[in-house]
Structures are given as C-alpha cells and as structure tokens.
Amino acid sequence: MSDDTGVADVNSEYGGVSPLQALEEIYNTLPDSFTKVCARCTNAEHEDMQERTDGYMTAWFLWQLCGDEDAAKVFVGDDAEISHNSNWQDVEKND
C-alpha cells in the first residue's frame, strides 16, 4: 500500500494513506495566521515515518512549545533547513 498512489482525484478514488493532494488541501484549509509547514519524506512509505521524522517533530515542538529559536531555523526563512534537505520533498511553508 502506497502513501500516494498517484490518482487524479483523491475524493473520487483511493489515493493512498497520505496522498499529496490531501496534504495540500489540509495545508490550504489552515489559515495563514498560523505558522504552517507541509512536507513529505522522499522515497518513504507510511511505516517509515516514525523513524524518519523524529528530528523535525522534536524541532517543531521545541520551537512551538518552548520558544527555541535555534529549532525554529529548521522551518523559518529562506535558508530554512527543511527547504534544502534532499530527504524532504513538496515543502510548503508560510513564513
């Protein structure tokens, strides 16, 4: 089972566990007044997520819950680490 089966319309047929189209819809639903980031691991399936996303999840929570400005650099600005990390694709952020 793929995270993204590549179907044209995930509302009319099964698009996988977490297809890009669905992620984009969720991202666009959130108001721009919230800091938001959307990205997918490159060449990964659903079962890979827990291990591969731990560092970014930790950085997100350190920033959002503890105000850690070093952790924020992973997501914020033109030189945000997530924007040029080849392990991540389809990065959208509204900073």
Rank of each mutant, 00 (worst) to 15 (best):
N87L: 08
C66G: 07
N85A: 07
V91F: 14
G6P: 00
V76K: 09
G6R: 01
A80T: 06
D54W: 06
T58D: 14
D90V: 06
Y56K: 03
C41I: 10
E47A: 13
D32L: 07
G67E: 09
A80D: 06
A8D: 14
L62M: 13
E69H: 04
D32G: 09
T42S: 14
D32Q: 11
H46A: 05
D79R: 11
D32P: 01
A59K: 08
A72K: 04
S18L: 08
T58S: 15
G67A: 10
C66D: 13
D78F: 12
R40A: 13
T35K: 12
N43D: 13
P19F: 02
G55Q: 12
M57D: 06
E24T: 11
N94A: 10
I26K: 04
N85V: 05
L62P: 01
G6L: 00
T29D: 05
A72C: 06
V17F: 12
P19T: 00
E69P: 03
E13T: 15
D78Y: 11
D95N: 14
P19G: 02
A72F: 04
D70G: 11
P19E: 00
A44R: 02
S18N: 08
A59F: 09
Q21P: 02
C38V: 13
A39W: 01
S33C: 10
Q89D: 15
Q89N: 15
W88C: 02
V76Q: 09
Y27V: 01
D3A: 14
G6F: 01
T53E: 08
M57R: 12
S18W: 02
A71C: 08
G15F: 00
V76S: 06
D95M: 12
N87T: 05
Q21W: 04
L30P: 01
D68S: 05
S86I: 14
D9S: 11
F34I: 08
Y14T: 10
E45T: 13
V76P: 04
N43V: 05
M57E: 07
E45N: 14
S2N: 11
N87D: 14
S12V: 15
C66R: 15
V10P: 03
C41Y: 05
D54M: 11
I26A: 10
V74T: 02
A72H: 04
S83T: 13
R52Q: 13
W60P: 01
V91W: 10
G6E: 02
T53C: 15
N94G: 09
V91N: 06
D54K: 12
T5F: 09
L20K: 05
A71H: 03
E47H: 08
L30K: 09
G16K: 00
G15D: 00
D54H: 10
N85T: 05
E25M: 11
C66I: 05
T42R: 15
F34K: 11
T42H: 12
S86W: 12
E13C: 12
A8G: 11
E45V: 12
K73M: 09
N85P: 09
L65D: 07
Y27H: 04
T42A: 15
Y56C: 03
D78C: 10
E51T: 10
I26N: 03
G6S: 04
W88M: 06
Y27R: 02
E47G: 10
Q21V: 04
H84E: 10
M1S: 12
S83C: 15
L62A: 11
D48W: 03
N87V: 02
Q89V: 15
D4I: 02
R52H: 08
I82K: 00
C41A: 13
